[in-house]
Amino acid sequence: MPFTFTKTVHPISFSDLSGQEFERLVFATLLRMYAWHTLDWTGQTGSDGGRDIVGTRDDDYGNRITVVVACANWKSFTSTKGNSDIDKIVDGLGEIPHEVIVVAGKSVSAATKEKCQAHAKSRGITVSEVWSGSEFEERLRFHADSVFQRFFSGEELPDEASALRTFVQQLDPTTEREAGELIARLFDRPAFSTPIRSESNLPAFRQAIGDTIGALNTGIWRDREGAIITRISTRQSFTSVTVKDALAECVTALTGLRVIFDEGLRNNHIQPCQCGKADCPTFMIEHEYCERLENERSRVLNYADVALSELGSKKLSRHA
């Protein structure tokens, strides 16, 4: 039977959920939080070796990294249990993942988190996080309110990864803030955060601009290979004139950014690395074009921030 929930402001009692129900919520929340190349729910098979969810996505430098998530909806979360899951992940995966996230259904003390993170570091894991139940709930409500509303209104989520992925992709945001967070994800990548200098690492810069324009215009965000990452609200679908106008100006500025980049390439003011690798992300850029690209990109982010602020989302982070 599906779990039912009476709508109140009280914290969620994740202990009332089965292991699979908890993992479904974590999987759905992760789908809303990040732009994944792949995301697989392995826990449903029953023999996951501590790896309930495994995904790949780009880090801040455009490198593809492996992220492993362990769902720990236990009555009591201890560092011993958390460290045991970390060991299972490292020993069973065949390679050390870049990032490990352990998601608990209960409270987790700061000391316990520190012990688990120290153990993960000792096993060669670069980034590790432990989410307490309340921290997971905050992410669920913030990034995936549509999932939260459906699930706790009694609608069972699909129990197979691809079906659950499709279900989440097709869910319309239930709040303006959730819609804003999906748009904010478009700009959470190196093309919009890497400092532009005389030698810049800009992976798939031009394509990232085109993908963003396409997503804002059509509501479909695709990755470099053309696969759908997720669906978002189109810029035309918002009722707020402020949001519509800001996103329209954002698209215009994105187009201008692409024009400057193409002009620089055409006139050899921007030159790809001479290493011979077709997908090398390094570009040599003359000072004038560094300034032009930075200024136009700032316009893009400023217009996006106007829309996101109106939708109740945080401003986009800027590089130092």
Rank of each mutant, 00 (worst) to 15 (best):
I183H: 01
I196W: 00
Q169Y: 12
I183P: 03
L171M: 15
T194K: 13
S193H: 13
R197W: 03
R177C: 09
L171S: 05
P190H: 12
A179S: 15
N201K: 13
A184M: 08
P173V: 00
Q169C: 12
T175W: 06
E178N: 07
T174Y: 09
I183R: 02
F192D: 05
E176H: 13
A191Y: 03
P190I: 04
N201W: 10
S198E: 15
A191Q: 11
S193R: 15
A179T: 06
P173K: 03
F187H: 02
D188S: 12
P195A: 01
S198A: 12
P190Y: 04
I183D: 02
T194C: 10
T194Q: 15
E181F: 07
P173W: 02
Q170C: 14
Q170D: 15
E176K: 07
A191S: 10
G180N: 01
L171G: 03
R185K: 14
R197Q: 14
E199Q: 10
E181R: 11
T174V: 13
F192H: 05
S193F: 11
L171I: 11
S193V: 12
L186V: 09
R185S: 12
E199I: 13
L186Q: 01
E176T: 06
E199M: 12
A191P: 06
N201L: 09
R189Y: 00
S193T: 14
G180Y: 01
L171V: 08
R177E: 15
R177S: 14
E176S: 11
A179K: 06
Q170G: 09
A191E: 10
A179N: 07
P195V: 01
E178K: 07
R197Y: 05
P173R: 04
P173E: 02
T175H: 05
N201E: 12
E181N: 11
F187N: 00
D188I: 03
F192G: 01
S200N: 05
P195Y: 09
Q170L: 15
R177T: 15
T194G: 09
E181G: 08
D172S: 14
R189F: 01
E181P: 00
L186W: 01
P195N: 04
R197E: 15
T194E: 15
A179H: 04
S193P: 00
E181H: 10
D188T: 08
S198C: 07
T174G: 06
P190T: 11
T174D: 13
L182K: 13
T174C: 08
F192C: 05
A179W: 07
T194M: 13
D188W: 04
A191H: 06
E176W: 10
S198V: 13
R185M: 11
S193K: 11
P190R: 11
D188P: 00
T194W: 08
Q170K: 14
I183Y: 02
